[in-house]
Simulated scan of single mutants.
Amino acid sequence: MPESLDPIQEEVQDHAGDSRLNGFIALFVAVVATFMALCNVKDGNVVQAMQQSQARAVDQWAYYQSKSTKQHIAENAVEMLRVQLDMSPGLKPAAQAKVEARIAAQEAAAKKYEREKEQIKAEAEQAAKDYEAMNVHDDQFDLAEACLSVAVALAGVTALTRKRWLFAVAGVFASIGLIFGLAGFLHWNLHSEVMAKLLG
């Protein structure tokens, strides 16, 4: 009689071990999936901000180009007025004063456009720098999501196969995903060029 109870006790113990493993897997998946969802939301916000920075940079460079065009027009007007003044030596003093005033006004406009261009250029370059900084965080969140997804998949396979070493591998992927996710949230300067290229 005692011999017949041993297989039942072993089955009960195996079932208790499986239940404990399934409980760990369920908790693991819940925590990882929650963190992955937070990373996904934050990454969406980062992508929107990147698009705004990119649009701002494009707008500023277009504005810079329009100021350059206006500056060239003003400079050309100065040259034309000077040629006109040189070719009209017998101009009355009042007419000559008007042309000289027009030259001074166009020179002032050209200098103003040059100053404005420098400010616009600085804003465009800052928008490009902002974009690049956010791109690093976008890569961090992408890498975090990839690692966390692999961790969840491995946890699911662990639940089916009962291979505990798979759960350890899932833990490694989850840890990498957690590190890169935290780097994205906390603006750490942590970047993997190799992984970014693979995911890009």
Rank of each mutant, 00 (worst) to 15 (best):
P2W: 12
I8K: 03
E11A: 13
E11Y: 14
V12H: 01
H15Q: 10
H15I: 11
H15W: 10
A16H: 06
G17H: 10
G17A: 15
S19G: 15
S19I: 09
S19H: 10
L21P: 00
L21D: 03
N22W: 07
A26M: 08
L27Y: 13
L27K: 06
L27A: 07
F28R: 00
A30D: 03
A30M: 11
V31G: 04
A33L: 09
F35I: 02
M36P: 02
M36R: 03
A37E: 10
C39L: 06
C39W: 05
V41K: 05
V46E: 00
V46W: 01
V46M: 06
Q48L: 12
Q52F: 05
S53H: 04
S53K: 02
S53P: 03
Q54H: 09
A55F: 01
V58I: 08
W61C: 00
Y63A: 07
Q65W: 02
S66Q: 10
S68E: 08
S68N: 14
S68L: 11
T69W: 06
H72C: 07
H72F: 07
A74Y: 07
E75S: 09
V78W: 14
E79A: 14
R82P: 15
V83C: 12
D86R: 15
M87R: 15
G90A: 15
L91I: 00
K92V: 09
A95F: 11
Q96N: 11
Q96A: 14
A97G: 09
K98L: 14
V99K: 07
K111P: 06
K111I: 10
K112G: 09
R115V: 13
E116R: 09
E116Q: 05
Q119C: 14
I120K: 01
I120S: 05
A122Y: 05
A127Y: 00
K129Q: 07
V136E: 05
V136T: 10
D138H: 12
D139I: 03
Q140E: 13
D142E: 14
L143Q: 12
L143T: 07
A144R: 00
A144P: 02
E145R: 03
E145T: 00
C147M: 06
C147W: 01
C147L: 08
S149W: 07
S149Y: 08
L154H: 03
G156Y: 12
G156L: 06
T158W: 04
L160E: 09
T161Q: 04
K163H: 00
K163A: 03
W165L: 08
W165V: 12
L166G: 02
L166H: 09
F167K: 05
A168P: 01
A174F: 13
S175Y: 15
I179Q: 06
I179E: 09
F180L: 12
F180R: 01
L186E: 14
L186K: 15
H191R: 13
E193R: 12
V194H: 15
M195R: 02
A196E: 05
L198K: 03
G200K: 06
G200M: 07
